[in-house]
Amino acid sequence: MNNIITFLNQGVKSTLNSMALALLSCHEIKDDNGQVAGYRAEVLPLSDSSRYVKRDGEIVDGPNALHSFNVIVNSTDIPENKGMIQGIKLINPRFVSAFATSQLNGTFATIGTTLVCDNIVLPNTQQPKRGDR
């Protein structure tokens, strides 16, 4: 996530609904027995119609546009994507962790998050295929 301010202000579902999302890539996540338990998807907001106002009055439009982020998808229906798939929707997205890291004697911390969803819905022209790898 490039900027989590809009997620904090508007909530996860509302903020993601204000974005046009594209699926860039998928990578299997396997359990201890080698079975596919889900996948990690790289998602790119092509456009972001959300905004926020900084303390000094500066208005920031589309803070997450064109900054990709990863989502852990709790589904074994892994899409076979051959390139970017535009117009995807995340089903039941939620943050499951937030953490900060900083440098020794540093002034700022980097905030990290883990975003999870139940599935990704592709546009009508493409449907996920059962991951039987």
Rank of each mutant, 00 (worst) to 15 (best):
N81I: 13
A65H: 05
L46D: 03
L44K: 07
D61M: 08
S97N: 12
K54N: 12
V53F: 04
N64T: 08
N9T: 12
N17F: 06
A65R: 07
R40S: 15
Y39P: 06
D56K: 00
Q103H: 00
E42C: 09
P93V: 00
D77R: 10
G106D: 06
C26Q: 09
N33D: 15
P63V: 04
L24H: 07
V60R: 02
D61F: 10
L46Y: 11
E28V: 14
S49A: 13
A100V: 08
Y39A: 09
F95M: 11
T76D: 09
S68F: 02
F108V: 10
D31E: 14
V60W: 07
S25C: 04
V36M: 14
K82R: 13
I88C: 01
E58M: 01
I78S: 03
D56H: 00
S25Y: 02
A100T: 04
I72Y: 06
A100I: 04
V73Y: 04
Q10M: 12
S102A: 09
M19W: 02
N105W: 01
D56Q: 04
H27Y: 09
H27L: 12
S47E: 09
K82Q: 14
E80Q: 08
V96T: 14
S14H: 11
D32N: 15
D48P: 04
D77P: 04
L21C: 07
T15S: 11
I88P: 00
P93K: 02
S97H: 13
I72H: 03
E28P: 11
K13Q: 13
V96W: 05
F108I: 04
E42R: 15
Q86H: 13
E80V: 09
P63M: 06
Q35S: 08
I59S: 13
I88Y: 03
Q86Y: 06
E80Y: 09
S14I: 13
K13Y: 04
E80P: 03
